[in-house]
Amino acid sequence: MTRLIQNLSEISTNYDALFVDLWGCVHNGIKAFPEAVKALQDYRKGGGIVILVTNSPRPWRSVAAQMLSFGVPEDAYDAIATSGDSARTAMHMGAVGQKVYHIGTPDEIAVFFAPSDILDNALEIETVPLEEAEGIVCTGPRDSMADVDVNRPEFLYAKQKGLKLLCANPDIVVDRGETREWCAGALAALYTEMGGESLYFGKPHPPIYDLARRHLSKIAQVDDAKIMCIGDGIGTDVMGGIGEGLDVLFITGGLAAHEFGNDPANPDPERLKTWLADQNLSPTAAISFLR
């Protein structure tokens, strides 16, 4: 039975560490949520450890810089585990070959394809046209507002060549302020639906949780029973946390806010209960917004 709470402090003393989602929980892609920042700062002041676990395709240093610009200070967390770092490690190990076709925005190339600072003897990756590629790396759509079906022609060609697609961000959609945008996960889902093979490294898949635990182990040894995941994505944060055997705090005021009534700050308990039953998932607790 999922417990509906009003403040993180009601249950946070039961945990030594938090794995916290970013987008929709700590910021909205434009600015920080002050109450969420304060809740994490207070938790850390009480001795708790905060590992930010994000499906951002960026390396952690880039995410840290972005968060500062949004108003999330460095004292709100201890470390950052990104889908980008997990995916980049696999890419530099040759998961989709050495010559890859990139799908994403031009500014992501310099960040994602930079030399690895994690691996020794990392494979040097070359971006090439689709016709020359050994695999595909998708950091996101070229146009986050365009229908993902625009990728069908090149995906059909790639599938026929037997190319694997490395997905740097399994999220399907994200809300930037009031605007909903497509993410790399939507393209990877389409490729899989068409019969291609997609490789995932962010939530809800194990590699990013392994990375988060490695970050945590550098600070303290914490049993899984003392770790709680926090997030607003039912198919990423909640499913991933439960799949890892961890407790989960579901943020109802994020991606699925419309499912629980007209007031995101006060989710209807019965609608929440019914919706979670339909999802066949039962997070430990739920809260409207992180605070």
Rank of each mutant, 00 (worst) to 15 (best):
T54N: 11
T89N: 08
V148C: 03
Q279G: 01
I109D: 03
P269S: 05
E154Q: 10
K159E: 11
T89E: 15
C229F: 08
A277H: 13
C183G: 01
G195C: 11
L18H: 02
E74Q: 15
A81Y: 09
A184T: 09
M1N: 12
W23M: 00
G84K: 05
L290N: 07
C229A: 15
L199H: 08
L22S: 12
A184N: 05
D85Q: 13
V128S: 01
I208E: 01
S217M: 14
F19H: 04
L18Y: 05
I136F: 08
V174L: 05
H102E: 02
L246H: 02
M91T: 02
Q221C: 13
D210N: 11
A90Q: 11
K38E: 15
K38Q: 14
L40Q: 00
A220Q: 13
I5Y: 05
T139Q: 00
D78Y: 08
L249S: 04
P59D: 01
D85R: 12
E74G: 12
K226Q: 13
T236K: 03
H215S: 10
I227K: 04
I230E: 04
A114P: 02
Q41T: 02
N280W: 06
D224Y: 05
G162I: 06
G162Y: 09
P59S: 07
L52W: 11
L18G: 03
H102W: 01
F201A: 00
D117I: 12
A81S: 15
Q279T: 00
L290V: 06
S83E: 05
Y191T: 11
L249N: 01
L22I: 09
N151S: 10
G94Q: 03
M67S: 01
M194S: 14
A168L: 04
D21L: 06
P153M: 09
G46K: 08
K161Q: 15
A158V: 11
A189T: 15
V248T: 14
C25R: 05
F289E: 09
Y191R: 10
A265S: 15
L246Y: 07
S282Y: 11
K159L: 02
D42E: 12
F250W: 14
D268P: 04
L255C: 00
L119Y: 10
L216K: 11
S116P: 06
A158L: 03
N262L: 09
F19A: 02
A189Y: 07
L281E: 12
A133S: 11
E74R: 14
M228P: 05
E154M: 13
D232S: 00
E154N: 04
H92E: 13
V111W: 05
P264K: 07
A188K: 03
R180I: 07
L163I: 09
D223F: 03
K226R: 15
L216M: 07
A81H: 10
I109H: 02
D42Q: 13
M1P: 13
A81D: 12
L290S: 07
V128R: 01
L211Y: 10
A285K: 04
R58N: 10
D210Q: 14
L18T: 10
D247N: 15
G196A: 04
T2V: 12
I118M: 15
V128M: 00
A225D: 14
D175L: 06
V128Y: 00
R213H: 15
G185T: 10
R214F: 13
L8N: 04
L211P: 02
I103W: 04
S144P: 08
G162H: 12
T179I: 03
N262G: 03
E35F: 13
